[in-house]
């Protein structure tokens, strides 16, 4: 059974069709890339999966369970993590607290957490992530005081803290110093290998996507133009035209 299956999502804004019937599946452990020129409907699709907007038609299933229109809270509890395109860390909390927060609501009960130790038993897990992301030296600074690239890493680390079975990454490379992009990719590969789970990555950086992903979905004008292994997509004439024509 696939981890995530998207069935025939359609969404229009007035006369403009942002997404016009998109379907695809994500297999366990798979890293799936979603590419497409600006305005191809990637973000609308992403938001439909995450319940942020309600698609006109279509269904989203997570591990066979219909999650269409689920709240961010429900999705998080189910084991779906996400990262944000723009910076969304908790600026006044320390980096360590950001990480612990990202997972603390996934263990124990609401009332139990009132009496739980401050770290809710997550100190070691947070340390593991700090080591992996090489953010140890800034672990106790307020997250808001870190550089843009570092905050971006924090955002990604937060998504992985509770060991989600599916992570949606919204342009992880946007705003990250090009020299750090390779490192980021290696990190994601390592996370995929170490803790499993499937990733869906929206990204403009072709090189990044092609090296990272197992499969790539190319969207144009709200529809899926091509699906396949990175090398297939790279060699696909229609894909090249869609990008060159843009």
């Amino acid at each position: 059974m696939s981890i995530l299956s998207v069935h025939d999502i359609k969404k229009s804004y007035g006369a403009i069709q942002a997404v016009g019937g998109v379907s695809f599946e994500v297999e366990p452990g798979e890293i799936l890339g979603v590419i497409g020129p600006n305005g191809s409907g990637k973000t609308t699709l992403f938001n439909s999966i995450l319940g942020q907007i309600k698609p006109d038609t279509g269904r989203v299933e997570f591990e066979g369970k219909d999650i269409s229109g689920g709240s961010p809270l429900e999705l998080s509890r189910l084991g779906i993590g996400r990262t944000f395109q723009n910076l969304q860390v908790f600026g006044k909390l320390s980096l360590r607290d950001n990480l612990i927060l990202a997972a603390q609501e996934h263990t124990g009960t609401f009332w139990g957490r009132m009496f739980a130790p401050p770290d809710n038993g997550l100190a070691d897990r947070a340390q593991e992530m700090l080591d992996l992301f090489r953010l140890n030296h800034v672990a106790d600074l307020p997250a808001g005081s870190l550089s843009y690239g570092q905050q971006k890493l924090v955002d990604i680390a937060m998504a992985f803290m509770p060991k989600p079975r599916l992570v949606l990454l919204d342009e992880p490379c946007a705003g990250v110093n090009p020299s750090l992009v390779d490192g980021l990719r290696e990190l994601l590969v390592e996370l995929n290998r170490k803790q499993g789970g499937s990733f869906v990555v929206i990204e403009h950086n072709m090189d990044f996507i092609m090296k990272l992903c197992h499969r790539v979905v190319c969207m144009v004008e709200g529809k899926v133009l091509a699906v396949g292994k990175p090398e297939e997509i790279q060699g696909n004439r229609a894909v090249l035209e869609a990008y060159l024509g843009n």
């Binding site: 709240s71 961010p72 809270l73 999705l75 998080s76 509890r77 996400r82 944000f84 969304q88 860390v89 908790f90 600026g91 006044k92 909390l93 607290d97 612990i100 927060l101 990202a102 997972a103 603390q104 609501e105 996934h106 609401f110 957490r113 009132m114 009496f115 739980a116 130790p117 401050p118 770290d119 809710n120 937060m158 509770p162």
Partner: peptide, 30 residues
């Protein structure tokens, strides 16, 4: 003690960025 517990961190998250907090599983209603 309450502020040191995980609740304290959840409260702070609520203040800093409620929408992000919700997506990490913080039940902002409660």
């Amino acid at each position: 003690l309450l502020l040191r517990s995980p609740w304290g961190r959840a409260f702070a998250a609520l203040r800093d960025n409620p929408i992000r907090a919700e997506s990490t599983g913080v039940n902002i209603t409660a």
